[in-house]
Design a protein around this nucleic acid. Structure first.
Lengths: 232, 232
DNA sequence: GAGATGCTTCGGCTACGGTCGAAGTGTGGA
DNA sequence: TCCACACTTCGACCGTAGCCGAAGCATCTC
């Protein structure tokens, strides 16, 4: 029954705990060095090196030499999307980590999903954008809405600029913690970058979670209101 | 860095070649016995049994006892969608099976993707439905279009019936061979079932490929014309 | 050039997981 | 009742892949 692509290869690549931890760490969107990834995987540098070589050979990772450092990132956003979708699947089946841990709530509230905002706040933002007509949602697809260009200009994002790039503007990404969609694509990326630029939020050191400042949080919630606080 | 769901667990489940082959075989949508799956995986019955137990514990598979047989299926269509998305990813990275094999062309032309039609013909069908306004496409999302109910009634499908079920009506599914979307969801399932009912096409024995009869193929192509034979 | 730092390669150890033969359980049919 | 068949469990074997210590490159700093 040798049919189609070889899913076992990439399954095996993701299936090792150390590698999975390193990939998860890279979902933070930042480029990390081999040493940092070794720490993330809970293994020594030598072991990490062989793992990284395998991941690169499998084209899940890309590397960039810079001085004596070697920075690794996910090869492209297809990898990020794949990982997030596997996370969503795993969460739905109860394949959770052994202990939830103290960081869990922060992670569920707001986190980086490769290069855009995910978690409760990510889902809220998309809900609000859809409600105000800035984004149109049909099925599980997203597109810029009638009021979109205007809305995003107020926030400081030029949609026309983003359209120039080949990357899709809007893309839905299934949120593993909320089990609903949040906004990915170049627009999602630009929004998160804007929040960082304005100082509304910042990343945390060794985690994917995003911390809002008190003022930033207020502005964010005001900018993206939700009509019904409890949605079905 | 113990964050979020455990992707390594399901990666490992899919990562074993024997298990991957069994899962691929089940993508055909038919329930298979342990013996059949052992053959699909290229392993003995004992080994298959332990693998199946693991897959079931991981909630990727569901089983149904019937007499002295034990029929296995994918646990639900979320599993099918996950597998197809991994296949798409793997195909995009060149993670193909060692030798393409003689069945490959048939598989690319038309195959079963869990319960709906995929491959060249699956993509063509969706393209045609979108072009005629039976289905609306926004971004990567799909919804029933203005002319939809009428179109599908002609084919013999009552959309209202399908809407009653909780399962999404239209869903896009990334085709690994064509690298473009085809139609999944309950509507996709109903369409494929209709083609089988009308005798236009039939499944093949141990493969996912779908074979059209000469007459069935003619009717199918007439029903789903494409304006520009070569699309970008 | 000498030394520190970041990373890779080598070699050898270990353990886990896949594998199958053989025996055990359960169901159906004669 | 007996046997055939579908499948599971047990036990043992084995290979591979992960792991780390030590040594080897490469690059930067002084």
């Amino acid at each position: 029954m040798k049919e189609g692509p070889d899913i076992a290869q990439i399954g095996a690549l993701i299936g090792d705990p150390a590698r999975a931890n390193m990939l998860t760490a890279l979902m933070g969107g930042k480029a990390l060095t081999a040493t940092e990834l070794a720490a993330a995987g809970g293994i020594t540098l030598q072991t990490a090196s062989t793992h990284l070589a395998k991941l690169e050979a499998g084209r899940l990772l890309a590397q960039r030499k810079q001085g004596r450092h070697r920075y690794f990132t996910l090869a492209d956003d297809a990898v990020g999307k794949l990982l997030e979708s596997i996370m969503g699947f795993a969460a739905g089946r109860g394949h959770l980590r052994h202990q939830p841990g103290p960081k869990e709530p922060a992670l569920r509230k707001a986190r980086v999903c490769y290069d855009h905002l995910a978690g409760d706040y990510g889902v809220r933002m998309l809900d609000s954008l859809v409600a105000t007509g800035a984004i149109d949602a049909v099925g599980d697809g997203l597109a810029i809405g009638a009021k979109g260009e205007e809305t995003f200009k107020c926030i400081g994002i030029d949609v026309a600029d983003l359209k120039a790039s080949r990357r899709p503007l809007c893309r839905s990404c299934l949120d593993w913690s909320e089990r609903r969609a949040h906004l990915a694509g170049s627009l999602g990326k630009a929004l998160l970058a804007t929040f960082f630029d304005k100082g509304w939020a910042r990343r945390t050191a060794g985690s994917r979670s995003v911390i809002f400042s008190p003022d930033g949080e207020r502005q964010f919630l005001a900018l993206f209101p939700v009509e019904t606080p409890v949605a079905a």
